[in-house]
């Protein structure tokens, strides 16, 4: 008998949100609705982060995905032509399906199977180094921590932004000339 407490109920609610949202994304013919469903799904993932005692990640998930990516997606959706009545069918379904099955199998074998049944993983203690957001901050910028990845992340973001500007600006100028 599973004992029903808040976290158990919350887990199932978030599971339904995540999977239901994902289902909505793949079954919707309307791109904007698909985006909204994707946000529902990602919101469920944020809930899992809370359940795993990582509230900072949950807030980041909501802030970055729902606050920024969703907006970006809707802007991107409006860049496509005839977005509500897509009549182009994606025909190469079999290779994609195979890829998805393989990925799922890898997840099951590699991640879910080892911990299935036992509750030991649940009771694993939190990391000794990073317990709070403050510790995370120390770890991010201290010499013996992750200062190099931290700076590389900044460099990556810079690269992404410059690349995007270069690509998008050309498109914009063509548009203006027309």
């Amino acid at each position: 008998m599973i004992q029903f407490d808040f976290s158990t109920i919350a887990f199932f609610v978030f599971a339904v949100l995540t999977l239901g949202g994902a289902l909505g994304v793949v079954t919707n013919r309307n791109l904007f609705r698909g985006t909204i469903w994707l946000m529902v799904s990602l919101f469920g993932v944020a809930g899992f982060y809370v359940l795993l005692s990582a509230p900072f990640l949950a807030a980041v998930q909501v802030l970055v995905y729902i606050g920024a990516i969703a907006i970006l997606f809707t802007f991107a959706v409006m860049l496509t032509r005839s977005l509500t009545r897509l009549n182009v069918r994606y025909t190469r379904l079999w290779p994609s399906a195979l890829g998805a099955v393989l990925l799922f199998a890898m997840l099951v074998i590699g991640v879910i199977w080892p911990v299935f049944g036992g509750n030991e993983m649940y009771s694993l203690p939190l990391s000794d180094v990073v317990r709070t957001t403050s510790d995370l901050g120390v770890a991010l910028v201290s010499g013996e921590g992750y200062v190099l990845p931290f700076e590389v992340a900044s460099l990556l973001l810079t690269g992404a932004m410059i690349g995007a500007i270069v690509i998008a600006r050309d498109a914009d100028e063509e548009e203006l000339e027309q």
Partner: peptide, 13 residues
């Protein structure tokens, strides 16, 4: 613990 970030995240909704 993440109150300040929480309100920014919620406001983005």
């Amino acid at each position: 613990e993440i109150g300040a970030l929480y309100f920014v995240a919620v406001a983005s909704l």
